[in-house]
Design a protein around this nucleic acid. Sequence first.
DNA 1: GATCCTCGAGTTCT
DNA 2: CTCGAGGATC
Length: 676
Amino acid sequence: MGAAGEIGERLRRLREEIDLHNYRYYVLDAPTIPDAEYDKLFRELQELEARHPSLVTPDSPTRRVGAKPLAEFAPVSHRTPMLSLNNAFEEAEALAFDRRVCEGLEISEAEYAVEPKFDGLAISLVYENGVLTQGATRGDGYTGEDVTANLRTVKAIPLRLAADRPPRLLEVRGEVVILKADFERLNRVQAARGEKEFANPRNAAAGSLRQLDSRITASRPLTFYAYGWGTAEGAPGLARHSQVMDFLAALRLPVCKERGVVRGVAGLLDYFHAIGAKRAALPYDIDGVVYKVNDLVQQERLGFVARAPRFALAHKFPAEEAATELLDIDVQVGRTGALTPVARLKPVSVGGVTVTNATLHNEDEIRRKDVRIGDAVIVRRAGDVIPEVVSVIRERRPPDAREFVMPARCPVCGSRVMRLPDEAVARCSGGLYCPAQRKQAILHFAGRRAMDVDGLGEKLVDQLVDNHLVSTAADLYRLDQPTLAGLERMAEKSAANVLQAIEASKKTTLARFIFALGIRNVGEATAKDLARHFGSLDALMAADQEALLQVPDVGPVVAQSIAQFFAEGHNREVIGQMRAAGVRWPEGAPARPAALSAVSGKTFVLTGTLPGLTREGAKERIEAAGGKVAGSVSRKTDFVVAGAEPGSKFAKARELGISILDEDGLLKLLGAPPPE
DNA sequence: GATCCTCGAGTTCT
DNA sequence: CTCGAGGATC
């Protein structure tokens, strides 16, 4: 072999090896060599190609870096049209789909290929004799845009298919997406550079793919999943869609791991619910699942209606984001006097529930998002629960949109509003003179984690305070049946229940009582620390700054808050009244000796819904066994206990490699003896 | 002084 | 759940 031939051979081997590592890294997510070694191979290839430009091939992994900006994208006609799917939002529509399929095919039960529906951008990739020659957006389904240069930078897309005799022509259909974790990283980078953050992974993927400068695309963490083929010439004859997917996977195209084959409508719905339950834990965003009749001959027999196939259906989850109108911004007063702006929205359905309010946190947040009253806004349920205004649709801003101004006086009591120079929140300076703060203080006192007075809710507290029946928490213990029964929506029976609950709350623990007082900066955890450290309320009340600083997790700020609270004569008086009324707890004995177990000293984080235990129950049992329950996952977390529909904590635990337990695992651990 | 971790506080809807 | 801020740690 001549020198040129040898170099050609070395180049070929290098490319093959790099392609394989790319596949393992980007598609299988299971690299087999360290990054540094990969970089070495890559550099060797780059150097060799630089010295022998004539031997550079278009499918070389070095050609992924991005090319010069284009003036515009060229139009591309798809050989086989990329049709849209019919959508279903209700189970009834899925049932109707299955019935039509069975009737159309004159069978009693159909077999379906099922897969998640990615929330990304549909694209088409053309491979000629195994080499990627063209990539295009879906466009209107018949004509898309040529984004070949951009798609070449996507590492999960093979530039050459892994086959000795690849099909003459293969159109691969799939979705370009950004993984959730990559999206968060990307936004952090954007923020650090002072550039605009993306609202969601889909927008980020769309924006990245539509860059005329492919070097920008190359810097974005795009990935790809194939979901089918269009025109295929010289490909093996296959009978089922599921086989097509296996074929694509064998060519080293990335395909979704969650795909499956099910029978009948029950199979479809089971899959829909299974994926729905897994949704939060999946690394990518999806907006539903797709059902396709698996048999390709049957698909052909069913054919198309208008522009959508009759053999496939997209069964969508309720939208997690929606556009609506911001009608007004109100201000709420919290227990500490914090003024929180709340968006009043035109009711809109998000994630299956109707949203009318959403917090805007504080003034800075409103400014940052540039939200104005009257704006069209995008609303999302953060972590699937709490509604939040994501962004403003600038193009739809009405000319009369008004900026929000934080009021100078408390909307409830008229006291001056203060904002400390280094704090984000504005506060009402009225203290307990402010009815809003008084009400919140009483609600906090009665809260489940504090004194646990069942049935004492917002409506009742409003009435009690407004009618001057109660002005401090101690007054609760002076209420009687006739007073309560005179209130709205308070029949004799409910009045008796509330009195009973108030009576029952008298028997409590020191930690709960300290928490219930609502001392600034003293929450549940600090209250427990204080109770354990001082053993009695009198010892705590007598403690000076220095004594307080001895308590773990108490620093100067918290110590100051506590000392200040007890120095206030009014507070001491209220506490005296409550003790006189019979509020009591076991005192003296500082903390029972925690049972020694495998759980002692370990930190747990709970996420999702456990089948047999409540969150509180699980927490109590872990603490009784000497463990700690923290709110968020970090490297110091020993175990994450995951139930059904876990949140982002589950993903984080996986990322950090923390042991994950289910309820059974937790119970076993609780019962297990301590490690030697 | 910077960084990481945890806690506190506020929030929605059924 | 998310944000901000207090505390601990290096």
